[in-house]
């Protein structure tokens, strides 16, 4: 493994993408300001079907915002980063064990679907400690998927058409390959010809449909408990929500926690199934708009009934969450804004 300290995040993403063209697994990590700088490079990777993993450590934004504190306000930015339409895969971890396994899973997805994968963690996970059983990290059972690979040679076509949009991948040094950020033909040469544009554009986007079809929706969501009161969340709030579930039980209140783990592709059918017939959906997020819930609405038409939100950069604390959930469930409050923590 080689690690390079780049001069800036523009260099970081483009070095990582360059590296991936040689067959090395490539990744880079950044927070909001750096992710903003990476957006053009991510668009190039999408256009050139280059696998790369970007770990996105979200802080309190906009700008440098609360630079030493946490946040979840960039979910929609991660989902839409880079100009143009291309497949972006977005996963979000809720605790350290998930962060570990998602980083490997993210690289598998990047190589299998030949596109950028954004792995969201938050400052409050990235800069925190937790005690975990070493047995959780056995390693030997971790699957590696590199997707379709070929040697290539002189007559190789990097962007050859196929039914599922995926073309067998060869590497620089092994095959005669052309890459370009301009629209290109199957060989990777520049062309603006209309019928080629139609076909190759669709080929790229088909890969996200393929991913949507192949990845089990059940693996994109964690469900804890079973209740008519659903706390809908993602990321680091997982911990407080699960702890609140136990505390509330002692007070005679049941909740179910639904943690979304993948936002693109989105588990729309499974979410519809889980949320069907629930009497209350409470969106819990570290941002102002409840962006994760907005994605749910966009994909399924389902709207939350109430909101527990926090954008002070501090993580959601157990006591304030228990209190807020009681207010929502017992008193029917529609929106509680949290500000706990020093």
């Amino acid at each position: 493994m080689v690690v390079v300290q780049s001069e800036d995040e523009i260099a970081a993403i483009n070095m990582a993408v360059g590296s991936s063209l040689t067959g090395a697994r490539s990744a880079t990590a950044t927070s909001g300001p750096g992710f903003s700088l990476m957006s053009e490079g991510i668009s190039w990777a999408g256009m050139n079907e280059a696998p790369v993993l970007i770990t996105y450590y979200m802080r309190g934004a906009p700008a440098t915002g609360l630079p030493t504190r946490s946040g979840q306000a960039d979910l929609k930015f991660a989902l839409n980063v880079g100009h143009g339409e291309f497949p972006r895969i977005v996963i979000a971890s809720g605790d350290h064990e998930e962060v570990f396994y998602d980083s490997i899973y993210g690289l598998n997805l990047a190589e299998r679907y030949q596109t950028p994968v954004i792995h969201i963690i938050e400052k409050c996970l990235a800069n925190a400690y937790s005690v975990l059983d070493m047995k959780l990290f056995t390693g030997s059972d971790i699957s590696i998927e590199r997707g379709l690979l070929v040697e290539g040679g002189e007559d190789y076509r990097r962007f050859a058409h196929s039914d599922n949009g995926l073309s067998p991948r060869a590497f620089l040094g092994k095959a005669r390959i052309f890459y370009t950020g301009d629209e290109h033909n199957e060989t990777g040469h520049i062309t603006e010809e209309s019928l080629n544009r139609l076909a190759i554009y669709e080929k790229r986007l088909k890969k996200l449909e393929t991913a949507d079809r192949e990845i089990m929706e059940e693996s994109m969501v964690n469900v804890f408990g079973d209740s008519e009161n659903v706390v809908l969340t993602w990321g680091s709030t997982k911990g407080a929500a699960i702890d609140a579930m136990e505390e509330l039980k002692e007070k005679g209140i049941d909740i179910e926690v639904v943690q979304v783990r993948m936002f693109s592709p989105y588990p729309k059918n499974y979410m519809k199934k889980i949320l069907a017939g629930k009497s209350r959906i409470i969106a819990l997020e570290n941002n102002y708009y409840a962006q994760g819930a907005e994605v749910l609405t966009e994909k399924t038409g389902i709207m939350p009934d109430s909101y527990i939100l926090k954008w002070t950069g501090r993580p959601v604390l157990l006591d304030e969450l228990v209190d807020a959930l009681e207010r929502v469930i017992k008193k029917g409050e529609k929106k509680v804004v949290l500000h706990g923590g020093a």
Partner: peptide
């Protein structure tokens, strides 16, 4: 330059 750096250092 950045892309080239990634390519060269990986291969």
């Amino acid at each position: 330059m950045a892309f080239a750096t990634g390519i060269k250092l990986s291969n």
